[in-house]
């Protein structure tokens, strides 16, 4: 007979939210991503990409699109293109731990509520940092 293990509520909630968010993120990333590999309706011309992908990110974008990138508007304002929609899938995946932690906090023991809130603030800082501190990693 298989013994039952009682998994803590905070672990259960975290796992359930992560599972759903990951599935959504993967679908949004892969389906438009695969379509973008046909080279049709893409923001970044594949031929120019190949000619420039040996350059550092900053130089790449200057030479391929004539833009400097600081933040997320380079793909969020171009959602009519499949490669940019695919990046939204990556955004959902990167948001997954944040949403999972947010959902978990009410179920967590008091000391873990505090620790998870700290992690949440750090993750939110990672998102907004490029917007408030122009220059990103460059």
């Amino acid at each position: 007979m298989v013994e039952e293990v009682e998994v803590e509520p905070m672990n259960k909630v975290f796992a359930r939210v992560m599972e759903v968010m990951t599935l959504i993120g993967l679908i949004v990333m892969i389906v438009p991503g695969l379509i973008s590999l046909t080279g049709e309706n893409v923001y970044v011309d594949p031929i120019k990409t190949v000619q420039n992908w040996d350059k550092p990110a900053e130089e790449f974008w200057t030479d391929v699109k004539g833009i400097r990138i600081h933040g997320y508007d380079w793909f969020l304002t171009n959602l009519e293109y499949f490669d940019c929609i695919s990046l939204v899938g990556i955004v959902i995946l990167a948001l997954t731990p944040i949403v999972s932690i947010l959902a978990t906090i009410p179920k967590a023991p008091r000391v873990y509520k505090l620790i998870l809130t700290v992690v949440l603030v750090e993750m939110l800082f990672a998102i907004v940092r490029p917007l408030i501190m122009a220059g990103g990693g460059h």
């Binding site: 590999l37 974008w61 990138i69 997320y72 490669d83 990556i90 955004v91 990672a126 490029p130």
Partner: peptide
């Protein structure tokens, strides 16, 4: 990942 996304270092291709 946010740092790489915000610097355009993620290419779907």
């Amino acid at each position: 990942a946010w740092i790489y996304l915000a610097n355009g270092a993620v290419l779907p291709v």
